[in-house]
């Protein structure tokens, strides 16, 4: 499973990449494999407020529906509209072209509730046994 070094992770398999006070979020390689071919994504609205670990996106594959939770609190400033017409990007390129939303963060302390790449890797190993 691919894990990107400097990103942070949740137990629900979302990633977040922070630059100053803005961040990009998406789902991890583990998540996209587990979900299978993704057929639909319901994106959040721009300007909507999200809270850490609260559902803000839902994703459907052929035989599953999953809630995606925001890794941190903030305001959505941009969404990846391309996913609406091509949800397969979430499978093909979950860390790059398949990013979901950009968020202006409101509470940097929340970082401490997330896992580093190393911790997330360990977490994944635990899941496989």
């Amino acid at each position: 499973m691919d894990v990107i070094e400097h990103y942070l992770y949740t137990k629900e398999h979302e990633w977040i990449s922070i630059e100053d006070t803005t961040a990009t979020v998406g789902i991890t390689d583990y998540a996209q494999v587990a979900l299978g071919d993704i057929t639909f994504i319901e994106l959040p609205e721009v300007d909507s407020e999200v809270e850490q670990f609260e559902q803000f996106v839902s994703i459907e594959s052929v035989k599953a529906a999953s809630d995606i939770f925001s890794p941190m609190s903030g305001r959505v400033i941009e969404i990846n509209k391309e996913l609406e017409s091509d949800p397969g990007l979430l499978n093909k390129s979950c860390y790059e072209k398949g990013w979901i939303a950009k968020i202006v963060l409101t509470d940097m302390d929340e970082k401490s509730n997330l896992m580093t790449a190393e911790e997330y890797n360990k977490f994944l190993e635990g899941l496989e046994t």
Partner: peptide, 13 residues
């Protein structure tokens, strides 16, 4: 198709 709307997948939702 679109079975993810239905009870056998989404249960109480």
């Amino acid at each position: 198709t679109l079975q993810a709307r239905e009870q056998h997948i989404r249960r109480e939702k």
